[in-house]
Amino acid sequence: MGKLFSAKNKEVFSAPISMNNPVTVQVLGICSALAVTSKLEPAIVMGLSVTIITAFSNVVISLIRKTIPNRIRIIVQLVVVAALVTIVSEFLKAFAYDVSVQLSVYVGLIITNCILMGRLEAFAMANGPWESCLDGIGNGLGYAKILVIVAFIRELLGSGTLLGYNILNYDAVKEAGYVNNGLMLMPPMALIIVACIIWYQRAKHKELQEND
C-alpha cells in the first residue's frame, strides 16, 4: 500500500484539484463550464460524469498504451472515450432522466472536452494504470470543483435557489426590493466568474503569475 499512495502519487492526484487545475490554470474545458453551470444540479452531474469518464479512459488507454500504434493513437483514444461517454449518457437517461434532459447535448459533447484528450495524450500514454486512474480522478474533480463554484454563484444570484430549493424567492425578500440577477443565467457571467476565480487564485499564488 505504501507504494500506491506514495508522495508522487498524492501529488498526481491533488495537483489538478488546486495548483494545476485544468480549468483555471490550463484553461481547458471552458465551453462546458459556461453551458451547464446556470443550475447547480446539472453542474454536479456533469462534473461527476467527466470525473468517471476521465478516470476510466485514462486506465483503459494506460493499459493498452504499449500496443497502440503511434500513428492512429488519437482514433483509438476517441473510440475508448466515445464508448465511455455513450455508457454514461445511457446511464443518465435511465436513472436521472430530468438531469439528462437539462444537460442535453453536453453529455455527448464530453467527448470533445479538451481535458479528456489532454490527459490521455499527456499522462495516460506515458504512465501506468494506477497513476493514470489517480490523475483522471484528480483532473475530473478539479474540473467539477470549478463547475460547482460557478454554478453555486449563478444559481443563487440568478434564480434565488440552490439545487432547486428556494433560498431567496420569498415575499419578504421581494418586498425589500430584491430582484434576481438575470445576467447571471447568461453565459457571459459564467466567463466572468471563472475569470474572478482565476484572478483570486493567481493573486494568492504568485508562482502562477506569468512573467512578461
Binding site: 440577477n181 438575470g182 445576467l183
Partner: peptide, 10 residues
C-alpha cells in the same frame, strides 16, 4: 448594459 440584461423589468 448590465442593468438591461440583469434586471430587464426595471
Amino acid at each position: 448594459a448590465f442593468l438591461f440584461f440583469a434586471y430587464p423589468a426595471s
